[in-house]
């Protein structure tokens, strides 16, 4: 009868994969360097650092807002040389950079729209009309800290949770 009861019996679970080959660099603007940092970031990545909880994409890079004046720069690691060292050099004096590639486990849920179970499970409003492609939220689910962003091309949702909690987080993700 109720909408929620229906979706519980639905078996069409979305595909969940873990992103493992990604270099993640945490960038935090040095004091009063924001303007210069923005300029260098734009010329380096081809996109501006998002000033609000958004994720932006450019070839080979995804930049996720991670708090005021902070971002996660995500790049495919592949067989590239030291991605982190390069960023550290580029932003020397403008931003503090830390390699956090191993801090979080990142899971991608392939879904163009959020399932009712996913919407119900989150303490933030994940409704299709509210949490738009490119939106980012730092929040918690089931007592676990998590960052979630909706891919700018609306093909899915990424969840980043502290690595040491990832077993419990996967338990949770498996239920949505």
């Amino acid at each position: 009868m109720s909408e929620s009861a229906q979706s519980l019996t639905a078996k069409n679970r979305p595909v969940i994969s873990e992103l493992t080959d990604v270099s993640v660099t945490h960038l935090a603007a040095r004091r009063e360097m924001r303007t210069s940092l923005d300029d260098v970031a734009r010329s380096t990545f081809g996109v501006a650092l998002p000033a609000t909880p958004r994720v932006v994409e450019a070839p080979g890079v995804m930049i996720v807002w991670a708090g005021p004046d902070q971002w996660l720069v995500m790049q495919q690691r592949g067989d590239k040389a030291d991605i982190f060292a390069e960023l550290a050099k580029t932003f020397n004096g403008l931003a503090s950079v830390v390699d956090v590639s191993d801090s979080r486990a990142i899971f991608r849920v392939a879904a163009s729209r959020p399932s009712d179970a996913l919407v119900r499970s989150m303490g933030i409003d994940l409704d299709d009309s509210v949490f738009r492609p490119g939106d980012v939220a730092i929040t918690h689910v089931s007592h676990l800290g998590v960052m979630v962003w909706r891919l700018p091309d609306a093909t899915g949702y990424d969840f980043a949770c502290p690595r040491t909690y990832s077993r419990d987080f996967l338990d949770w993700l498996g239920k949505i």
Binding site: P53, G67, G123, I124, A137, I138, T139, H140
Partner: peptide, 11 residues
């Protein structure tokens, strides 16, 4: 002011 409206369980 950064994240938007959240429940007080986040604070």
């Amino acid at each position: 002011p950064f994240c938007g409206e959240r429940g007080n369980d986040e604070f």
